[in-house]
Simulated assay, not measured.
Amino acid sequence: MTRKRSATRWLLAVLYAAAGYLHIMLPAPFVKITPTWVPYPGIVIALTGIAELLGAVGLSQPWSPRLRRAAGIGLALYALCVWPANFHHMALDMARPDHGLGLAYHVPRLLAQPLLIWAALWASEATDWPFARHTKR
């Protein structure tokens, strides 16, 4: 299980580092899909990029389990907080005559969000669920 956790941790670190880089260096597509109720979308996108980069660094480091857990919890909360933007992006695309990226992209993306949340928590050892051994009392 340790190898699977480590592999998941590194995969998430790479994905979040890449996403963070893109949020900072190429913010336009992210600003475009940001819900209208989000204030200062350009600043928010830059801050989300920084959060992703910091989470990736924290998740990938081996020397502090507490920092790694904090990063996992932070990335899980981040994934939860950006989920509405994913729904907004789907609504924008579905309103277009060509349906943008279409349901074949958006539905799996929306369904994967809970998996990303869980993976960040599990890989960081913030949870053992569902693999914890249950003992009878």
Results as ranks from 00 to 15, higher is better:
Met1Leu: 14
Thr2Asp: 14
Thr2Ile: 14
Arg3Phe: 08
Arg5Gly: 07
Arg9Gly: 02
Arg9Tyr: 05
Trp10Gly: 15
Trp10Thr: 13
Ala13Tyr: 07
Val14Trp: 12
Leu15Asn: 12
Leu15Asp: 04
Tyr16His: 15
Tyr16Gln: 08
Ala17Val: 03
Ala18Asn: 11
Ala18Trp: 05
Ala19Asp: 01
Tyr21Ala: 13
Tyr21Asn: 10
Leu22Ser: 14
His23Ile: 11
Met25Val: 13
Met25Glu: 15
Leu26Met: 14
Leu26Cys: 09
Leu26Pro: 00
Pro27Met: 10
Ala28Gln: 15
Val31Phe: 04
Val31Pro: 01
Val31Asp: 11
Lys32Ser: 11
Lys32Phe: 09
Thr36Asp: 14
Trp37His: 09
Trp37Phe: 15
Val38Arg: 02
Pro39His: 11
Tyr40Glu: 07
Gly42His: 07
Gly42Met: 03
Ile45Met: 10
Ile50Gly: 01
Glu52Pro: 04
Val57Lys: 02
Val57Glu: 00
Gly58Met: 07
Leu59His: 04
Ser60Gly: 15
Ser60His: 04
Ser60Thr: 13
Trp63Phe: 12
Ser64Arg: 13
Pro65Lys: 09
Arg66Phe: 08
Arg68Ile: 05
Ala70Phe: 13
Ala70Cys: 06
Gly72Asp: 00
Gly74Lys: 13
Leu77Lys: 00
Tyr78Cys: 04
Ala79Val: 05
Ala79Cys: 14
Val82Ser: 12
Val82Met: 08
Trp83Thr: 15
Trp83Gly: 13
Trp83His: 13
Pro84Ala: 01
Ala85Thr: 12
Ala85Val: 10
Asn86Tyr: 04
Phe87Asn: 09
His88Ser: 14
His89Thr: 09
His89Trp: 06
Met90Leu: 11
Met90Glu: 08
Met90Ala: 14
Ala91Asn: 13
Leu92Asp: 06
Leu92Trp: 07
Asp98Gln: 09
Asp98Ile: 02
Gly102Met: 03
Gly102Asn: 03
Leu103Gly: 06
Ala104Leu: 14
His106Asn: 12
Pro108Trp: 06
Pro108Glu: 02
Arg109Gly: 01
Leu110Val: 01
Pro114Trp: 04
Pro114Gly: 00
Leu115Trp: 00
Leu116Cys: 01
Leu116Arg: 02
Ile117Tyr: 03
Ile117Asn: 03
Ile117Cys: 04
Trp118Gln: 04
Trp118Ala: 00
Ala119Ile: 02
Leu121Thr: 07
Leu121Asn: 08
Ala123Ser: 15
Thr127Val: 15
Thr127Trp: 09
Trp129Ser: 05
Pro130Ala: 12
Phe131Cys: 02
Ala132Asp: 10
His134Ala: 02
Thr135Glu: 09
Lys136Pro: 03
Lys136Trp: 09
Arg137Met: 07
